[in-house]
Amino acid sequence: TGSPVPASTATLVRVLKNSNTLGIAIEGGANTRQPLPRIVTIQKGGSAHNCGQLRVGQVILEVNGISLRGREHKDAARIIAEAFKTKEKDHIDFVVFEPG
């Protein structure tokens, strides 16, 4: 599945839906300078901020087991939005990678 990601810097982060917004801004997607979505903002009071484990600069590899590799920005954003909207789970599992 593309270039191997060093396992040591890939992390599974579970974000509980304890606020009515996820509260992250993402940049990137296939065919852009940033090939995988990267977190560029975390809003105070959002579920991501409350979780405390997501950080600006982290790259999102997977959402609830769905790989974002090779997906355009809009597709990746839709997958994350739907993962937050769905009532089936009270959390979202992100696999993130800390570059550098």
């Binding site: 509260g23 992250i24 300078r33 920005h73 994350i80």
Partner: peptide, 15 residues
């Protein structure tokens, strides 16, 4: 590196 420079910047989406 050159290829990356010619790619367009990405949009930003708030979720």
């Amino acid at each position: 590196r050159e290829k990356r420079l010619t790619l367009p910047p990405s949009e930003i989406t708030l979720l």
